[in-house]
Simulated assay, not measured.
Amino acid sequence: MNDQLQQTLQALQGGVTSVDAGAAVSNISAWEQTLGGASGAGGITGQLSQLRSMLEGGDLDGAAALLPGLADATEQAASSAPAADQDGLRQLASLLRP
């Protein structure tokens, strides 16, 4: 599993509400850079951008409302991800669901 995915999973172990908004924004920005231009990642990067904007603006309810869709997109992406990352992406999708 790649290091960035492993770090994200570790950050979410206490649940999404336990992550500091500033740390979440930093993590989301890193994922936007990682996924930018990746084939098939446009839907996820768009959702990440919305999530980052809501967190930066303090709209936690709006951010929470985006998580199920982001979880679904992450789970779908797992099937075409490198084999070493598939289980981690499925775990991430699960952690993003309320």
Rank of each mutant, 00 (worst) to 15 (best):
L5G: 04
A21H: 09
G40S: 15
A83I: 14
A11S: 14
L95N: 10
P68E: 06
L92D: 01
A93N: 10
S94H: 15
P98R: 14
Q13R: 12
P82T: 13
P98A: 14
L51D: 00
A84N: 12
Q50K: 08
A77C: 09
S26V: 01
G22V: 07
L55K: 04
Q6F: 10
R90D: 02
A63E: 04
G88K: 09
A38R: 13
A11Y: 04
L67D: 02
G36M: 08
L51S: 04
D87F: 10
G37L: 12
M1D: 00
P68Y: 01
N27T: 15
Q86Y: 08
E32V: 11
G15L: 00
Q13A: 14
A11C: 02
V25Q: 02
P68C: 07
G57L: 10
L5F: 07
A38V: 14
A24T: 00
L67V: 13
M54S: 06
Q76F: 10
G14N: 14
A63M: 03
W31H: 01
L66P: 11
Q76Y: 05
A93Q: 03
Q47W: 06
S18G: 13
L51M: 12
T8A: 02
G15E: 06
S29T: 09
L55R: 02
L67S: 02
Q13H: 06
Q76D: 12
G62I: 11
G15A: 10
S79Q: 14
E75L: 13
A41T: 06
A81T: 11
L89Q: 08
N2I: 12
S49E: 06
L92K: 03
A21V: 07
Q4P: 02
E56R: 09
S79N: 15
L5D: 00
R52I: 00
A93M: 11
E56V: 07
L96S: 07
P68G: 09
V19T: 03
A21K: 05
A84I: 11
A41G: 10
A30K: 06
G58E: 07
A64I: 12
L67A: 01
D85P: 12
R52K: 15
A84C: 11
G69W: 00
A64K: 05
G14M: 11
D3Y: 10
S18M: 06
E32C: 11
T34V: 09
I28C: 01
L51V: 05
Q47M: 15
A78I: 07
S94W: 07
A78D: 08
W31I: 07
Q4W: 06
S80C: 00
Q4V: 14
A65D: 13
A78C: 15
Q47I: 05
